[in-house]
């Protein structure tokens, strides 16, 4: 079993799970397949020797973000969508076409990058010699990207305050104010 075969197995599983995330009717099924997806991606990162990113991926994405999703799904008790029919409108198709076209163009441009760009000195051997992936990433993160790092922490603080304010129960609201939208509308 070479690394290439392993990659193909992982890629096939990632594809399947991605399709299941958007294709399944039950939101909890989607969330579970999203977890599988993120875990498999972490495996692919680990195969690329990006151990730090792989660990962070599982820790933050699979371990915290998707748990939040599952938590909200259970809190709101969303079993099914109101009606399962996929309604396709012309603006949707136009948007899909534009997205697809621009994506193909970008993909072509990106695919040409390796031949155009100058290859840096951080080959896997150089990273291993410099003290391992985590050390190298940490050095770059805390020197070259110090200010973006600080900004990211402020962003997290803002998000924390914002989500508390938004999700807080409105004390002024009267009991009868909650309005349910008629499903036949």
């Amino acid at each position: 079993m070479t690394q290439l075969h392993l990659f193909y197995v992982f890629a096939a599983l990632v594809t399947f799970c991605s399709v299941m995330v958007v294709g399944s009717r039950n939101p909890v099924t989607s969330a579970v397949f999203l977890v599988f997806d993120l875990f498999l991606l972490a495996g692919i990162y680990a195969m690329m020797e990006a151990h730090f990113v792989a660990a962070i991926q599982v820790l933050v994405y699979a371990g915290a973000i998707v748990v939040l999703f599952v938590f909200v799904i259970m809190l709101l008790n969303l079993e099914q969508e109101s009606h399962g029919k996929v309604r396709v409108s012309i603006p949707d198709i136009v948007m899909m076409g534009i997205t697809g076209l621009s994506f193909v163009i970008i993909a072509f441009l990106v695919a040409r990058v390796p031949s155009m760009a100058t290859v840096g000195e951080m080959t896997p051997e150089a990273i291993a010699a410099a003290g391992g992936n985590t050390y190298v990433v940490g050095m770059v993160l805390f020197t070259k990207y110090l200010w973006p790092f600080e900004l990211a922490s402020i962003l997290i603080l803002l998000a924390m305050v914002a989500s508390i304010v938004i999700a807080k129960k409105d004390k002024a609201a009267k009991p009868g104010r909650r309005r349910t939208v008629n499903a036949n509308q």
């Binding site: 579970v32 977890v35 875990f39 151990h51 730090f52 660990a55 962070i56 599982v58 820790l59 699979a62 371990g63 915290a64 748990v67 599952v70 391992g132 992936n133 985590t134």
Partner: peptide, 17 residues
């Protein structure tokens, strides 16, 4: 793994599911 610490924290957080 050279990130044994993070590995343990990461995988143990999956136990919630």
């Amino acid at each position: 793994v050279d990130v044994g610490f993070l590995f343990i924290l990461a995988v143990s957080s999956l136990g919630i599911y």
